[in-house]
């Protein structure tokens, strides 16, 4: 299980790290109920400050995506509803972002949908 870390200057680090972990979970790279590595190991892997990584994990705990089981460690949530709602939210954000960008290029929704349908089967 390897994480892909996307870090740039546009947002606070802990938010970007949380995004990357969230993506890994909803993409299924990190399975429901799977154990998550320790803060130190994650920080080491991402080359970030452990405090920052801790804040990212706390954020995900707040969302309900991750659970702490006492001293056993941190695990991905198994609650299907939670996972689904978060996946929906991420997809919604993607769609909003896409629409915004297309409109910035003078491409309205119908145009956007048309272009998407044209694509089917090509790739």
């Amino acid at each position: 299980m390897e994480f892909v870390w996307h870090i740039d200057g546009t947002a606070p680090l802990y938010i970007q790290l949380a995004d990357d972990i969230r993506l890994a979970i909803i993409q299924g790279r990190l399975m429901p109920g799977a154990r998550i590595a320790s803060v130190r190991d994650l920080a080491f892997d991402a080359k970030v400050n452990p405090n920052t990584m801790q804040r990212a994990l706390t954020e995900l705990e707040r969302e309900g995506l991750i659970e702490t089981h006492g001293t056993a460690g941190r695990f991905v949530a198994v609650n299907e509803e939670v996972l689904k709602s978060i996946k929906d939210r991420v997809i919604d954000d993607l769609v909003s972002d896409f629409i915004k960008r297309m409109e910035a290029l003078d491409c309205d929704r119908e145009e956007a949908v048309r272009r998407i349908n044209e694509r089917k089967g090509e790739e």
């Binding site: 740039d8 200057g9 546009t10 947002a11 606070p12 680090l13 802990y14 920052t52």
Partner: peptide
């Protein structure tokens, strides 16, 4: 670092 990123919207 995070406070500055949030406040200024840029990397350090």
């Amino acid at each position: 670092v995070d406070g500055a990123r949030e406040k200024y919207g840029k990397s350090i």
